[in-house]
Design a protein around this nucleic acid. Structure first.
Length: 865
RNA sequence: GGGCGCGUAGCUCAGUUGGCUAGAGCGCUUCCCUUACAAGGAAGAUGUCGGGGGUUCGAGUCCCUCCGCGCCCACCA
């Protein structure tokens, strides 16, 4: 307990209290507590690949208010932090920062040091190729530096995280848990390996999952190609992907389309390549699109995949994993029968044409094939430019291609099962549930969890190599659980020795790593240390709260629910609190690429203080977008300062002469009674995760508390100098009780200012004090009393009019009012009588006359100044 | 194409099951250095509650419809 400062200030409070909280372990999780006494939070592990932005600060603050509220409600809060240092974003950052490139074929170099910047601070232009273990070492270095920065920012913001519980998504614990889950699912056939059409980013050369797709509107062009029908007639096909013509395996039109009905069951011949392809009916073909008949290629888009599967078509793969067209394709005549895949009615012409395409990029191939088509008169007119949506990997630069590839998948349960499971999950706000259900209902195929990358959790898998030296990808050798965590590139499968690696009759490591979401979907289990620390797990799992952004409902939330559904047959948490985005004043989402984030969080925290920023952040209720608004931050800062000053004043008046004095004055009682109502409402809305409303209500109360109540009672509270002064004691007792209550209501939002004030007159941390209840307030006020409320209302209204008289006369508020005539109804005048002394004192009124009338009016005579 | 959310003062937003003359803060205007606070205080002005219908004694609130913005989902040759 310290004394009340003369000049309270917010400056330095963050540094002061974060240090004291750390020293005293204020937010340390007490693991002697049992599950029913614990409130556990599945914190989103931020990706450690750049800088935190103000959007992070906003959403993590929301969670922190919930954590602080639950802590004050008496729960032991399990609030860990995780770092998502796993995955592509980190790889990219490391490539950029160190000018290196991972080449898994290289051996580990123990003496490797990364390239250093020259005098101008520039790194070499051409990246240095390094081994996977070297690359992973670099990743770990970069990541730990960033984690330090993140920790610093979160501490300044005042997150009440227990930093002893911090985890990472690539550390040994997370790797073990992720691999253990994978092995269990593999054992049950839920995880499986399969060759299938795969969404593929040709830049990063990795598979991506459906959840990571996004549409982008890009320019394209329709090309009208001439196919030859069964009777030699022309069939015109509109396509935006003419370069995929060699991969054409069929034509398709709508079954009801009379123009093409006669052709169904017959074949057409492709231009340039002379491949005979069937003409098929399918409902997905749209008669009014293009010419109404489309070519199916393996694979131009996801519709092609559906057609290919449902029409049971052959596959002609032409796009390689590097985004170039396959080089080694030889078309053969119909009679040699050597390879029915590349069968042409005119193999010589087909091969001659294909020579212009093989090995070329998609872009060049398209240019070349258009030239060929035009030269042969197989294209009508020029390409017609259009703008159309194309699927991209959300982090990618080039459109996705679909290639066939062997990948690990997790079999999704039926959508209705997932949706039924999620019925037990409470969404805040509830309308966010629809995004979850839309996604479940729109799933196509299973979850591809394989990424052809380096910095991630590896698959604990090897493949046997036969006597010819070929790996058998469909007979994986799984690690046993006691071996975990496993890196198959350095560890040896059971029953083999290291010298059999990559040898005929030996084994080969699975070269890939798991999708980031496959590991972060285990975050509740990682944070609670599933089968790593059974004692902890029992105390915190399943969790109470999953806070997260709405943009990752389809990835993180969905995959976490699916994993827990499969592995534990239950929900991993009970509540999902969904936060919105920070948007700039034009309502555009803040993003690094657009560079519309005005100032970084560090600058804003410096300028407005953590409490100011937190106030702004909590203005946005669950799910709502919030505009980056320095004005609101400034208001938050003022509120925090006001709290310090009002507290200083209320406490500075001193303690009641009789500590057991009763609250007797109607104004004091009314103040406590309305505060009791406020407490009930704040508690109710907080229980519904509506922190924003709790703050808004508390703030509204606080303004009238300082503007009216404090002004009205301060004269009386100072006392008349006599030793026993029940009227002064009434004010003091009520003020102290109200102050304690208001501080607690603000504590989740303004942890620094409230803790500071608390330290002036109370022991311990306010953040471990009990959340207020309304009964003690009502008891202190002597029970409910509507007439007291009227006294307070009339007093405030009269005071406002007295002030107005001075304001209109443009004189100081200190100016004396020599006489005032107050007109009002009989009932309200009676109420006024009970606050008469307070009002006259606050308004500096010497004499007053009361006149009965229809409504309130005040006529004041001012002293000469 | 389907769905969700939003639209209230110049700005950011409250407005709970329909109920007095629609609120707060910022900004603005006028004033006040007052012994909690000038990083402050007092008072004031500012609204066809997106448009149009309807239900009702009564609609910002409920229903229909239209407009605008944002987002999610969708098999987008």
């Amino acid at each position: 307990m310290s004394s009340i400062p003369d000049k309270p200030t917010l400056d330095g409070l963050e540094a002061k209290w974060r240090q004291i909280w750390a020293e005293q372990g204020t937010y340390r999780f007490d693991r002697t507590r049992t599950r029913d006494e614990v409130y556990s939070i599945d914190t989103p592990p931020p990706t450690v690949s750049g800088a935190l932005h103000i959007g992070h600060v906003m959403s993590y603050t929301h969670t922190d208010t919930i954590a602080r509220y639950q802590r004050m409600r008496g729960y032991e809060v399990f609030y860990p932090m995780g770092w998502d240092d796993n995955g592509l974003n980190v790889e990219r950052r490391v490539q950029m920062m160190t000018a290196t490139l991972c080449d898994p074929s290289l051996p580990y170099d123990p003496d490797f040091t990364p390239p250093q910047p020259d005098e101008k601070g520039k790194l070499p232009k051409d990246p240095i190729r390094i081994s996977r273990p070297n690359f992973v070492e670099l990743c770990e270095e970069v990541v730990s530096e960033l984690e330090e920065q993140y920790f610093d920012l979160w501490s300044t913001v005042g997150l009440s995280v227990d930093w002893d519980q911090t985890y990472t998504t690539i550390g040994p614990v997370a790797s073990r848990i992720s691999q253990r889950a994978f092995l269990r699912l593999l054992d049950r056939g839920v995880a499986y390996r399969s060759g299938a059409p795969t969404l593929w980013d040709v830049d990063m050369k990795t598979a991506v999952a459906q959840a990571e797709l996004e549409d982008r509107e890009v320019p394209g062009a329709y090309h009208k190609l001439e196919f030859t029908g069964p009777d030699g007639q022309a069939i015109w096909i509109d396509t935006t992907r003419p370069e995929l013509l060699p991969a054409c395996v069929a034509l398709v039109a709508h079954p009801d389309d009379e123009r093409y009905q006669p052709l169904f069951g017959q074949t057409a011949t492709t231009p340039l390549f002379g491949a005979e392809v069937p003409i098929c009916p399918h409902e997905l073909a749209e008669p009014d699109k293009g010419t109404g008949i489309a070519m199916i290629c393996t694979f131009g888009d996801t519709t092609d995949v559906v057609w290919w599967r449902e029409l049971d078509l052959p596959i002609r793969p032409v796009v390689r994993h590097d985004g170039r067209l396959e080089r080694d394709i030889t078309w053969t005549g119909p009679d040699d029968g050597s390879d029915p895949t590349w069968c042409s009615v005119d193999p010589d012409e087909a091969n001659e044409n294909y020579a212009e395409l093989g090995g070329k990029t998609i872009f060049t191939a398209q240019k070349n094939i258009v030239e060929l088509l035009m030269a042969k008169g197989k294209m009508e007119g020029e390409p017609r430019p259009i703008s159309h949506p194309v699927k991209f990997w959300e982090n990618g630069k080039k459109p996705l291609e679909i290639v066939t590839s062997n990948q690990w998948f997790i079999r999704y349960p039926p959508a209705e099962d997932i949706i039924a499971r999620a019925k037990g999950l409470q969404f805040h706000p509830e309308y966010m549930r629809v995004r979850f259900e839309d996604w479940a209902n729109g799933l196509q195929g299973d979850w591809n969890i394989t990424r052809q990358r380096f910095f991630g959790v590896p698959f604990p898998i090897w493949y046997p190599i036969d006597e010819h030296g070929d790996a058998d990808l469909l007979s994986p050798i799984a690690a046993t659980e006691d071996m975990l965590p496993v890196d198959p590139t350095t560890m040896v499968p059971p029953g083999y020795t290291e010298d059999q690696r990559n040898q005929p009759g030996g084994f080969a490591a699975d070269p890939d790593v798991m999708d980031t979401w496959n590991t972060s979907s285990m975050s509740p289990q990682i944070a609670s240390k599933w089968e790593e620390d059974d004692d902890l797990f029992e105390r915190v799992y399943p969790m109470d709260l999953r806070p997260q952004a709405h943009e990752i409902i389809r990835t993180w939330l969905f995959s976490t629910v699916v994993k827990a559904h499969e592995l534990f047959d239950e929900l991993p948490f009970r509540h999902a609190a969904i936060s919105g985005f920070v948007v700039d004043p034009d309502r555009k989402k803040l993003s690094k690429s657009k560079d519309n984030a005005k100032a970084g969080p560090v600058e804003l925290l410096e300028q407005f203080g953590a409490d100011g920023i937190r106030y702004w952040a909590c203005g946005g209720g669950p799910g709502r977008d919030v505009a980056e608004d320095p004005g609101q931050m400034k208001i938050g800062r003022r509120l925090a300062i006001k709290l310090l000053n009002a507290s200083k004043f209320a406490l500075g008046i001193g303690e009641p002469s009789d500590p057991g004095a009763a609250v007797t004055e109607p104004i004091d009682r009314a103040m406590l009674l309305s505060l009791a109502d406020l407490v009930d409402e704040c508690t109710r809305v907080f229980d519904e995760y509506d922190y924003a409303r709790a703050l808004e209500r508390a703030e509204t109360y606080f303004w009238s508390f300082t503007d009216d109540h404090l002004e009205l009672v301060k004269g009386r509270a100072y006392g008349d100098g006599s030793e026993a002064d029940p009227a002064a004691d009434s004010a003091k007792v009520a003020l102290r009780l109200a102050l304690e209550t208001v501080l607690k209501l603000f504590a989740p939002f303004l942890p620094f200012a409230t803790e500071e004030v608390w330290s002036w007159w109370r022991e311990g941390s306010i953040h471990h004090s009990a959340w207020p209840t309304s009964e003690p307030l009502r008891d202190a006020a002597g029970g409910p009393d509507d007439s007291a409320a009227l006294v307070a209302t009339v007093a405030a209204e009269v005071l406002t009019l007295l002030r107005k008289a001075k304001s209109d006369a443009k004189v100081s508020m200190r100016t004396e009012i020599t006489s005032a005539t107050i007109t009002d109804t009989r009932q309200r005048l009676a109420a006024f009588e009970q606050a008469r002394a307070d009002v006259l004192d606050a308004g500096k009124v010497t004499s007053v006359e009361l006149v009965e009338g229809p409504g309130l009016s005040v006529d004041a005579t001012l002293a000469d100044t």
